[in-house]
Nucleic acid binder design. Structure first.
Length: 666
RNA sequence: GCACCCCUAGCUCAAUUGGAUAGAGCAUCGGUCUACGGAACCGAAGGUUAGAGGUUCGAAUCCUCUGGGGUGUACCA
C-alpha cells in the first residue's frame, strides 16, 4: 500500500491521550486498527480512508469523531497527504499529495519491480496445480487449475516468496488399465508407431465407451423402475395436495410435490441418457460386436490396473512405453499455454511409499480395519477416509498422504496450496484433518478451490454428445476468432505498414490464448462461470484484448515519439499531474502492488484482473484527454511520456503475472 | 437423510473480508470530437443484494428460519 500505516503505528499509541480516555491498545489491536486504512469507495472521500476510529471509540467509550480527531492530531503524514478530514460517523479521509504521487511514479518507473517491495517474511509456498490424468485428452476442466495455479505462482514469486510448483500428474490410475487393456485387445502397432498419441487416445476412448455401454445396459432397467417409482410418488403427492384441507397442509404438500417432480425428472433424464447410450451402440454394428466380445471389460480393466501396480512385467513395460508419449502430449499443451513446473512428480512416483503410509497410520493409531478395508475414521466426518481397499489397492487419499510426507521432507514448505476444484472439498478436509493428527500442525495446508466451467446453457460445459470439451479445440477456436479480428480489413488498411502473416499469427495467439486465461481469472475462483467465447475474445468490455490493446496504444505513442521505454525510464522525472485524467491514472498505477497483495491474501487472481482493467480504463481516458506528442510544451510532453511508459510497464508486468503476453501493436 | 457452497441490474460478473449513496461490462437509449492509433470517450436508464427476523454506530457480507439452485456423501480421482 502507498501508505504503510502498519509499519509505523505510533500514531495510534500517541493518540491515547484525552481523546481515547488514556486507552492503551495492545500490539495486535494496533496492528489491526492501523490496517483499517483502505481505498475509498468514492473519490469524494479522498484516496484512502481509515475506519479505525469507530471500533476504537467502542473500546474506550468515547465518541468516534473525538477519537478520530485525537488520531489526526498526532498523525504525521504531511509529506504524503493533505490534512485529513473527519466525515460521517468517524471516517478519516486521506488525500494523497500530487507531488508525492508524482515521486512515486518516477520511482516505480526506475525500479525493476515497479516499486513492489519484497515480502518482509518470505515464505516457501508449494503450489500443486493442473494435475491432469495422462492418457486422456486434456479438456476444459483442466483450464482452471492450470491457469489459476500458474497465476498464483507467478504473482507470489514476484512478491518475493519462494515458490515451488509441482504437477501431481495422474499417471498411475485406471486410465492406464484401460489403455493397456485396449492395446492388448484392439491395439494397432502400425498406428502406434505412426502416431502414438492418436492411437493411445483412440484406445482410451474405445475402452471407455465399452465400459459405459455395459454399465448402461446393466443400469437401464433399474433406472426405468426408479422412474416408475418416482412417478408413483408424484401421483401420491398430487393426491395429497388435493386432499389437503387447511392452507398450511396444502403448502407443505405442494412443496413435497415439487420435490417429487424434480426427482422424477432427474430419474427420467438418467433413464433416457442410458437408453441413448445403448441405442447409439446398437446402431453401430462394429462397436456392438466388440461390446459383445468383451462383456467383463470393466473388471478386466481393473485387473490390468492391479497387475500394473503389482509390478507385472508385461504391464509395467507397456506403461513405460506409453508414458513418454502421454507426457509429450500434455507438454505440448503446456508449451502452448506457456506453463512450466519446477517438478512433475506424478502418482507413480509415490507408488512404492504407499505401504509405509498405511503402516504409519496404523502406528499412529489412526487407521483401523473395517469391512475389509483400511480406514481412517475421523470424528468430524460421517464416512471414513479409506486408505486401502479390501482388494489391497491404495487410493488417492493414500497417495496424497504419501505426497505430503515427501514434500515436507524434500521441500520444507511453509504452506501447500492445492488448486483443485470444489467438488473435492471433503477429501481435502479429511486429508488435512488426518495430517493434523500426524504432526503437520506447523504446515499450512489450503485447498484453493474453484468452481465449474459452465456452457452457455448454465450446465457444466459438455459437448452435445455429453463428453467434455477438448482443451486444444477451444484454444484453436479462440485463436481463430482472434485472427479474424486482427485481419479485419478495415483495420489492416489503417495500420501503418500492415502486418505480415507471422505477426498476425503472433497477435492472434497472444489475444486468443490471453482471452481464455483472462476470462477464467476474471471471475472469483470460487464461483462457477459461463464459457462464452465470443465475449472472451471481444474487444469491448473486461477482456484481455482490451487491456492488451491499451498496452499497444501506449507502445504506439512511444514508438511514434521515437523513444525507447528504457530511455524514458532512465531519465524519468516526477510527472506534473495537472489535469484529473493524469492524477487519476497516476493513482491507479501506484496501486499496482496493492492488487498483488489482494491476490495473495485470498489466493484469488481476479483482484489483479480487476486492477488491470481499471488501469487500462484510466489510461484510455488519459489517452483521450491528454495529448502527449502534441502537448502544449516539451515539458508536458516529457511529463506525460513518463505516465505512458509506466502504464505500459504495469500492464505488461500485470498481464505477465497472469500468464498473458502482450504485443507491441495490434 | 446429512454436510458444504451459492442466489446481487434484463444478461454475465465484481464488491479490498463489517464501512459512507452496492459497482463494472454486455445489451438498450442519447451524446462528443478535423482520429498524437477510434478497437475511443461522455452520459442516461436499470437494485427492497431470493424472502423474513436478529446482532450494531453501520450488513450483500455475521447469526436464525423459509424458499430456490448446485455439489459431495465406504473402497474412482
Amino acid at each position: 500500500m502507498l501508505l504503510d500505516p502498519q509499519a509505523d503505528n505510533r500514531w495510534l499509541t500517541e493518540a491515547g491521550g484525552a481523546g481515547m480516555a488514556g486507552k492503551v491498545l495492545s500490539a495486535a489491536d494496533r496492528d489491526a486498527f492501523a490496517g483499517m486504512v483502505r481505498p475509498t469507495a468514492d473519490p469524494r472521500f479522498g484516496d484512502y480512508q481509515s475506519n479505525c476510529a469507530m471500533p476504537i471509540a467502542k473500546l474506550c467509550g468515547k465518541p468516534p469523531r473525538q477519537v478520530a480527531q485525537a488520531i489526526i492530531d498526532v498523525l504525521d503524514w504531511e509529506g504524503l497527504c493533505h490534512p485529513p478530514e473527519i466525515a460521517g460517523p468517524g471516517f478519516i479521509n486521506l488525500r494523497l499529495r500530487d507531488d508525492f504521487l508524482a515521486t512515486v511514479m518516477a520511482e516505480m518507473l526506475g525500479d525493476d519491480s515497479l516499486g513492489v517491495e519484497p515480502a518482509d517474511e518470505p515464505r516457501t509456498i508449494l503450489i500443486d496445480y493442473s494435475s491432469p490424468n495422462v492418457a486422456k485428452p486434456m479438456h476444459v476442466g483442466h483450464i482452471r487449475s492450470t491457469v489459476i495455479g500458474d497465476a498464483l505462482a507467478r504473482t507470489f514469486r514476484y512478491l518475493g516468496h519462494r515458490v515451488i510448483t509441482d504437477n501431481h500428474l495422474g499417471d498411475w490410475g485406471t486410465q492406464f488399465g484401460m489403455v493397456i487393456y485396449g492395446f492388448k485387445h484392439f491395439g494397432d502397432e502400425v498406428a502406434l508407431a505412426a502416431g502414438p498419441v492418436d492411437e493411445l487416445s483412440r484406445l482410451y476412448r474405445l475402452v471407455n465407451r465399452l465400459i459405459a455401454y455395459h454399465a448402461a445396459v446393466a443400469d437401464h432397467p433399474g433406472a426405468v423402475t426408479a422412474t416408475a417409482a418416482a412417478t408413483e410418488v408424484v401421483a401420491r403427492a398430487e393426491a395429497a395436495v388435493s386432499a389437503a384441507t387447511d392452507a398450511k397442509a396444502k403448502r407443505s404438500a405442494e412443496k413435497e410435490l415439487a420435490a417429487a417432480v424434480r426427482k422424477q425428472a432427474a430419474a427420467r433424464q438418467r433413464a433416457e441418457a442410458l437408453q441413448a447410450t445403448v441405442a447409439a451402440a446398437q446402431a453401430d454394428p462394429d462397436f456392438l460386436r466388440q461390446a459383445v466380445a468383451h462383456p467383463g471389460i470393466a473388471d478386466a480393466v481393473l485387473l490390468e490396473t492391479a497387475k500394473l501396480h503389482s509390478h507385472d512385467p508385461e504391464n509395467r513395460a507397456l506403461w513405460e512405453r506409453f508414458l513418454p508419449h502421454c507426457r509429450d502430449e500434455i507438454d505440448r499443451v503446456y508449451r502452448r499455454l506457456d506453463i512450466r513446473f519446477d517438478h512433475t512428480l506424478g502418482e507413480s512416483f509415490y507408488h512404492d511409499r504407499l505401504g509405509d503410509v498405511v503402516q504409519r497410520l496404523r502406528d499412529a493409531g489412526l487407521a483401523t480395519d473395517s469391512e475389509g478395508a483400511v480406514c481412517v475414521f475421523l470424528p468430524e466426518f460421517d464416512s471414513p477416509m479409506i486408505v486401502q481397499k479390501k482388494d489391497g489397492a491404495y487410493l488417492y487419499a493414500t497417495t496424497d498422504l504419501a505426497t505430503l510426507f515427501y514434500r515436507r521432507e524434500e521441500f520444507r514448505p511453509d504452506e501447500i496450496l492445492y488448486v483443485v476444484d470444489s467438488r473435492q472439498g471433503e477429501h481435502f478436509q479429511k486429508l488435512f484433518a488426518a495430517a493434523a493428527r500426524l504432526g503437520f500442525q506447523g504446515l499450512r495446508l489450503e485447498h484453493v478451490q474453484f468452481g465449474t466451467v459452465l456452457g452457455e446453457d448454465g450446465r457444466p460445459f459438455k459437448t452435445r454428445s455429453g463428453t467434455s470439451v477438448g482443451l486444444e479445440s477451444l484454444l484453436d477456436e479462440a485463436v481463430a476468432k482472434a485472427l479474424e479480428i486482427v485481419c479485419d480489413p478495415q483495420r489492416v488498411a489503417r495500420s501503418d505498414g500492415g502486418m505480415d502473416e507471422a505477426e498476425r499469427q503472433q497477435v492472434a495467439h497472444a489475444v486468443g490464448h490471453g482471452a481464455i486465461k483472462y476470462a477464467d481469472l476474471a471471475h472469483h475462483r470460487t464461483s462457477d462461470y459461463r464459457f462464452e467465447l465470443d465475449k472472451m475474445v471481444a474487444l469491448e468490455g473486461n477482456t484481455s484484448a482490451y487491456v492488451q490493446y491499451a498496452y499497444a496504444r501506449a507502445r504506439g505513442i512511444m514508438l511514434k515519439g521515437g523513444m525507447a521505454p528504457e530511455a524514458i525510464a532512465a531519465s524519468a522525472q516526477p510527472p506534473v499531474l495537472g489535469v484529473p485524467a493524469e492524477r487519476s491514472l497516476a493513482l491507479t498505477l501506484a496501486r499496482f502492488g496493492e492488487s498483488l497483495q489482494q491476490v495473495r491474501a485470498d489466493n484469488a487472481p481476479n483482484f489483479l484482473v480487476d486492477y488491470l482493467y481499471d488501469a487500462a480504463k484510466a489510461y484510455a481516458v488519459f489517452n483521450d484527454q491528454c495529448p502527449v506528442l502534441k502537448a502544449d510544451s516539451p515539458e508536458i510532453a516529457a511529463s506525460r511520456m513518463v505516465l505512458v511508459a509506466l502504464t505500459a510497464r504495469v500492464l505488461e508486468t500485470g498481464l505477465g503475472l497472469l500468464g498473458i503476453r502482450v504485443v507491441p501493436r495490434m
